[in-house]
């Protein structure tokens, strides 16, 4: 039990990463592939956050007397994850835009039917 408690975030993050990878590899629907990308993205972001997490830590602000920096969570990953989320949104929006245009051109979202390019 204590193992799960201390590693729950890592297990969750890598679970999400693996699920995302699996979805991207297995699914044939464009939208589902994009969902897979999004899950993968979330997994990496969760991992990023949990690296700086401290159980029962405080916010990294010297708001009152007597707070020592040892009990604060690491603020750097939080700053990084914001950037990573914004980038993820941009990629997601572009990929969805491409999916819409592909649907208009081919009339399908099935990857197996969108196959004009070959080796």
């Amino acid at each position: 039990m204590s193992f799960l408690e201390s590693y729950a975030y890592y297990v969750g993050a890598f679970g999400l990463i693996l699920i995302g990878l699996l979805v991207i590899l297995v699914k044939r629907n464009l939208i589902k592939i994009i969902i897979g990308l999004s899950i993968l993205d979330t997994g990496v972001n969760l991992f990023l956050i949990s690296v700086g997490y401290l159980a029962s830590g405080t916010a990294p602000i010297f708001s009152r007397e007597g707070i020592d920096s040892g009990s604060m969570v690491d603020p750097v990953p939080q700053a990084l994850v914001l950037t990573a989320i914004v980038i993820g949104v941009a990629v997601l929006a572009l990929a969805l835009g491409l999916a819409v245009r592909l649907y208009q051109n081919y009339g399908t979202l099935d990857m197996r039917k969108i196959k004009e390019l070959k080796w």
Partner: peptide
């Protein structure tokens, strides 16, 4: 048609690559 298909493929594989890079960055941090 072909441009969109190629771009989609590129976008999926490219962002997969970027995710690996980000994971590596987090790991090193």
């Amino acid at each position: 048609r072909q441009e969109l298909e190629a771009a989609f493929k590129y976008a999926v594989m490219g962002s997969l690559g970027s995710m690996f890079v980000l994971l590596g960055v987090v790991w090193m941090y």
